[in-house]
Write a protein that binds this DNA or RNA. Structure first.
Lengths: 154, 154
DNA sequence: GATGAAATCCGAGTCAC
DNA sequence: GTGACTCGGATTTCATC
């Protein structure tokens, strides 16, 4: 089997990233191969992990998750155990969309979606500062989402 | 037409968010309605904007975009014109996945994906500090992606 | 090892109720 | 909201290169 992607595979990836509902027949037409070949290639993109999954993107504002907040977190101690404990606890909080260990003034950056500022303040007091090992947090309310989760450019 | 979503609609939204490739027939079974009803409800979720689009999620590491960087940006001036100009320029840079206007120590937060640190350093020098009105940037390299773009919990 | 044509099967989309 | 129907796409097989 071919080791990497050719021009057609990349085009398929981009098309599917833009529209995950494309039918195999449409995709085949767009990249000018037969439906059978297109189907096999698409399978491969999934099987080999180029596409991890397909997601219907839900509009946050429509399901009462219109408020976005970025939070910088500093832990008490910078030990592997401390990090592990924090990360384990974060995974359970479903309102946390991103959690990244970073180099710089913070240990972690969180991206959080909630209904509104009141929600966030309650959650912050109840759940964020209660996370294991948290020394301090810095909250950045998002006032305008200029670009959110743009497609990958490759 | 019903003004909001019932329990079945919410379940469909969650299922489609988890797997955008679900067939209408499968979805209908999962929520225990007929395929015809399920089809109409799904249509509505799209037509009324509950689902904005469907995306195949491409694995960044597989397409040489394995490096993630968060960048805080401070502008020279806090005028609407300055903001508008900055935002317009940001929209053209495809390696910027998120750009949010925030309240706090920064004006904007960016989330950026590139191939590696060398890529980022070149881009930072060439394109980020060259963005209109940028006074300073603070870079946070992501050392570990604990959670990235988790599904929305609603 | 990959391709396209053809054949089968099954779901999407529509209509009447 | 359901059931039935038609059409077209998904998926497999197979011959070919």
């Amino acid at each position: 089997m071919r080791a990497s992607l050719d021009r057609i595979d990349f085009k398929m990836l981009r098309l599917l990233q833009d529209n995950g509902r494309l039918t195999n027949a449409e995709l085949a037409q767009s990249v000018v191969v037969s439906p059978a070949t297109c189907h096999r290639r698409t399978q491969r993109l999934f099987d080999e992990g180029y596409i991890s999954h397909v997601r219907a993107v839900v509009t946050p504002q429509k399901v009462d998750r219109g408020a976005l907040v970025m939070v910088g977190v500093v832990l008490d101690r910078s030990t592997p155990e401390s990090f592990a404990e924090f990360e384990k606890a974060v995974a359970k909080l479903k309102f946390i969309l991103d959690c990244h260990l970073v180099a710089g003034d913070f240990d972690y950056f969180l991206k959080i979606r909630v209904g509104d500022m009141a929600d966030f303040n309650r959650i912050h007091g109840d759940q964020l500062i209660a996370l294991p090992g948290v020394r301090q947090t810095r909250t950045f309310f998002v006032m305008k989402e200029v670009v959110d989760n743009a497609p990958l450019d490759f």
